[in-house]
Every structure is written in structure tokens, then in C-alpha cells.
Amino acid sequence: MFLLISFLFFLLRISPGDPSLKFISPDLSPKLAAKIRDSFNLNSSLVDQYKAFLINLVRGNFGISYTYRMPVLSVIKDYLPFTLIFSSISFLIQIIAGFFLALFSVKKINGAFDKTISKLSLIAYAIPSFVLGVSLILVFSSALNLFPSSGLSSFDFSSFSFFQRLSDYAFHLVLPLITLSLSGVAVYYKYLRENLEDVYNKTFVLNLRAHGFTEKEITRKHVIPNAINPLISVAGVELGILFGGALVTEVIFGLPGMGRLTVNAILSRDYPLVIGCTFISGVLVILSNLAADLIKVRVDKRLLKSTLN
């Protein structure tokens, strides 16, 4: 993490662009304009800036966002909860839907269901999210008038009861969640279907059948644990990426997530905010991978033994 944000610090400082440009009236003389630039502390040497940055970082201070004029962590605090909840729900949808679709598919390999879902999953994976998002809006918002086309909540949200608020959020998030999750469902489906098929074809499954175990027992106790293990690592990485923000979905549906915040910070050269967003995203990626490793160990105890050995 230290290396990542140090690298980012220098990269931002040497990249072209002037974050103070917005604050300088064209009517100002160069001398007064330079004074404003000075207030951004960008005129001191890179080493001095880096030293100050590190000292602040140790104190947990990422600085003040140039754009929002608030401490960086306060800005992120407004956006992070949405991203965490939205990404987690999407992640669960991807895993659960992918898992059950794969399970039903391998029940009858090359059956009608398997063939249909396999083809649909290819389409779902291939559709870019902006195409999917706009198409969903056209069908479900514009034509059928079923769901709102953007926003996280209704304007009368503050007057709603707790359950009304909950349903209002859900109502607004149906289309964004489909947009964000569909390609992930296809990926997990493909992974799991192949893994499940592989495991079903292993000789130990034949042995279990020969010993009279029921299909339900074989699937639950032996096939699924073996099949999902390789997927856990992939899921850990995917979750980390999701936590970084879902830019396209956020833009199309006007949602207040980390993706939009980070990209806007980059475009406006809001250096402290870019570093803050990257730090938080980096921490979340590490935590997601750690969680994935712990789950892997929990599912397959041999891993822990081999690690200890």
C-alpha cells in the first residue's frame, strides 16, 4: 500500500494539469494568481511535498480535497457506504445466481436448460454494461414504466417510514444491480459449471455412487466443496474490483459511488482525493483477498495443514 500511494503521489505531481485553475479569475494579475497557486502548496519541491504528505498520512490525514474543500476522508465517507452495500449485494447476486444456474445445468448436461443458459451466459458476458444499462432503462423505465431510470431514492424519501425507505432503495437499485451483476453471473456460471462437471466426472464420485450414497449427499458433501474452491480466489479479486466502484453503472443510473468520485477527482486533478480513493480501494482489495483466503482455508482444511507444514 505504501509503495502504491507513494508511486501515485509522484505520478500525479509530474502529470500535466493545474488543480488551482478553477479558482483563478482571468482578471487576476499573474502575481495574485501565483498567490492562489501558492495556497495549494504545489510550488515547493517534490521531496518537501512528499515529506509533508507522509507525515500527514501517518497521522491519518489525507489532506483537504481541492474540489470539495473538505477533509478527504469526510468526502469518501459520503460515497463509500453506498459502494460497499451496492457492490456486496451485486457480488452476492453474482455468486448465488451463478452457483444455482451452474448446479441446475450440470444436473442434465447438454439438456435444454444447460444449452440455453450456456448460450445466454455468453451473450450476458459479451454485452458491455453501458449497452445493457441503457437497454434496461429503455425497456423497464421508458417502455414499461416499471422502475425509475436513475437515482438512489425518491425525492420524498425523508418523509418515508423505515420499510418504505428500504423498498424505495430496492426499487431504485433493481436495474443498476442487474446491469452490474449480469456479466458476473455469467462468469461465475461458466467457472462453476466447468468445475462441477469436472468433479462429477472424477472417479471418487463414481465410487461414492457405487457405495450407495444419494446424489444429494454426493453433490452437497463432495462435489460442491471441491468445485467452489478454485472459484473463491477469483471471487476475492472480483469483490475487490467491485469495491473500487462501478463507474459505468454509476454514471448511467446517476448513483453516488466511489467510481464516479475517483474519476471526477482524476479529471479535476484533485490530488489528495485521488490518493484517498486509491488508498481505500487498495485496502478493500487486500481485505477481499484476505477474506477469500480465509474462506478457502475454512472450506478445505488441507490448505491450512499444508501451510502450517
Binding site: 414504466n145 416499471l146 425509475p148 425518491s154 423498498s167 424505495d168 430496492a170
Partner: peptide, 8 residues
């Protein structure tokens, strides 16, 4: 959810 929410 669908039935409880008013369209904006």
C-alpha cells in the same frame, strides 16, 4: 417492492 413504490 414494485407495488409499494410510487413511480417518480
Amino acid at each position: 417492492f414494485l407495488s409499494s413504490c410510487n413511480k417518480e
